[in-house]
Design a protein around this nucleic acid. Structure first.
Length: 237
DNA sequence: TAGGCCATCTGGTCCT
DNA sequence: AGGACCAGATGGCCTA
């Protein structure tokens, strides 16, 4: 789904500033940092402020009874106004840099999530896992793999105790061996149900709780995933 | 149309 | 002071 693809800097409000940086809905004429963004901000700029000097008088009007101090403090006011402009520019610049960093940070986070998705066993026709689904599925998947290894160790240990007297050297468990242990003949779907961690079963990480209804990921899917995914047991490949 | 998911902006807080 | 991190807010897109 195109909507699920990570967009980099393609948002409708994206613009390019004078330094060639992309930014969002920012104009150099806007004096308030709170005017950044897509107009969705709670503290939207007051349009009337754009026409007012620091003293609160309209910029394009001369001395008036409403602004008796303007003429006397013109120079001082100008200086103050200029420093405020500089401060505003600095503030805006810092905000833009912070926004840029935040964007990059979120992009890095999304890249890490994509990397995590790529090693999770999913089927080609499956929709892309959402962020929360990815995290929860990864949690359950790791738990399932851990449990599989534990059972493999247990099985090999029991077999090894019987054969240890005859075989001085034993090979470590192979991928085929581990996969064989996950075959339907050696483990039942109900056992796979139990492969989901206690945390998953009682907490919010339950596969059936964590994945929205309608998603195809059921507990019984786990062995199929482990059997068919090229990413199954990547550390053993 | 409501709800879910997402990207982005933003201000606050903590850390270096 | 500046960067990283976080949570809240907001609007866009998609789907049931």
């Amino acid at each position: 789904s195109p909507a699920l693809l990570e967009t980099t800097d393609c948002s409708p409000g994206a613009q390019v500033n004078s330094e060639g940086e992309q930014y969002y809905g920012v104009s150099d004429d806007e004096g308030s940092a709170s005017s950044l963004g897509t107009g969705s901000l709670p503290s939207s700029p007051n349009p009337s402020l754009t026409r007012l000097q620091a003293g609160g008088c309209p910029a394009d009007e001369g001395p008036s009874p409403e602004c008796p101090q303007k003429k006397q403090k013109a120079r001082r006011g100008r200086t103050k106004a200029k420093s405020e402009v500089v401060l505003t520019k600095q503030k805006r610049n810092r905000r833009m840099k912070a926004n840029d960093r935040e964007r990059n940070r979120m992009h890095n986070l999304n890249s890490a999530l994509d990397a995590l998705r790529s090693v999770l066993p999913t089927f080609p026709d499956d929709a892309k896992l959402t962020k929360i689904e990815t995290l929860r599925f990864a949690h359950n998947y790791i738990w399932a793999l851990t449990e599989t290894l534990r059972m493999a160790d247990h099985s090999l240990l029991s077999v090894g105790q019987q054969e240890l007297a005859r075989e001085p050297f034993r090979q470590p468990p192979t991928t085929a061996c581990l996969l064989e242990l996950t075959s339907p003949g050696s483990i039942s779907p109900c056992e796979w149900d139990s492969l989901y961690s206690p945390v998953s079963q009682t907490g919010s990480l339950s596969p059936t709780d964590s994945l929205e209804e309608g998603r195809s990921y059921q507990a019984a899917d786990a062995p199929a995933c482990l059997r068919h995914s090229p990413h199954a047991f990547p550390e053993f490949v």
